[in-house]
Design a protein around this nucleic acid. Structure first.
Lengths: 126, 126
DNA sequence: ATAACACCTGAATATCTGTTCATGGGTTAT
DNA sequence: ATAACCCATGAACAGATATTCAGGTGTTAT
């Protein structure tokens, strides 16, 4: 997926830690359980098609079929992904007859998107 | 990893969308490229050992060997992971003789952690 | 020079993950 | 009742991923 050989190499001597010298440690080391929960959550956001689904739902409620068309995936594939997004409580749904309308559940996904964008938009600084 | 059969089921009729009725759509649907970049970034945070490494570094600078001991992984495994964290610009390093000291690069990881925690701590509401 | 140390890297393997395909349940129309 | 429609699900397969293992580079000590 990514070519890690093009990683940021050769740092300067200037200290570039998130918290410098005298600053007290901000956090304890994560327990394996907490780390596991974090990883499971972020892992859900680690798939491009799930991001496309989420961004489509950011425009408003959508039926599964329309959602599939919007992201050019099969209904089955979308349905599988929606199950995961449901379990992670990122989306909710509402049944009307034989249709099922999905939508985003809350604002957390927006904040995460924004925070990630800021990080990704930062200059390479090499 | 997760049992998706225990997903949130049986919604009420009350609308629970992130943006209600008349609100205008907040975003366009993500391009495949942007979705790909997002997924790659969040995918890095989709591993429990990487979270333990990051949280260990949140306490301060650490040598690779000490880091490995702190998270109970082999030096090799840690080194492989650090390469990924370096490429994602989540950590930086500093060479002193034959030692290499790693530390967190910026605050984004804290914000992401906090945002995710808030989401995960929300009640199940079933 | 030689050995020990700290770290990095490539290949190989076991595991996890996402899609497809086929099928089944529930709802509406005829 | 029957057919058409919408969606969910399980199994299976292909692709991605993380660790282990063996070996390599560069640095410090003897």
């Amino acid at each position: 997926m990514v070519d890690y050989r093009s990683a940021a190499e050769a740092p300067t001597e200037a200290v570039a830690c998130a918290h410098d010298s005298g600053t007290p440690a901000r956090a304890e080391i994560l327990s394996v359980e907490k780390a596991q929960r974090m990883a499971e959550f972020f892992g859900v956001l680690g798939d491009p098609n799930r991001w496309r689904i989420l961004s489509a739902l950011a425009q408003g409620e959508l039926r599964v079929g329309d959602l599939a068309a919007a992201v050019t995936m099969t209904e089955s594939a979308v349905s599988h992904q929606l199950r995961i997004l449901r379990a992670t409580r990122l989306v909710t749904y509402r049944k009307r007859g034989r249709n099922v309308f999905y939508c985003l559940k809350d604002d957390h996904i927006f904040n995460l998107y924004q925070e990630a964008s800021e990080h990704l938009d930062e200059p390479a600084e090499d």
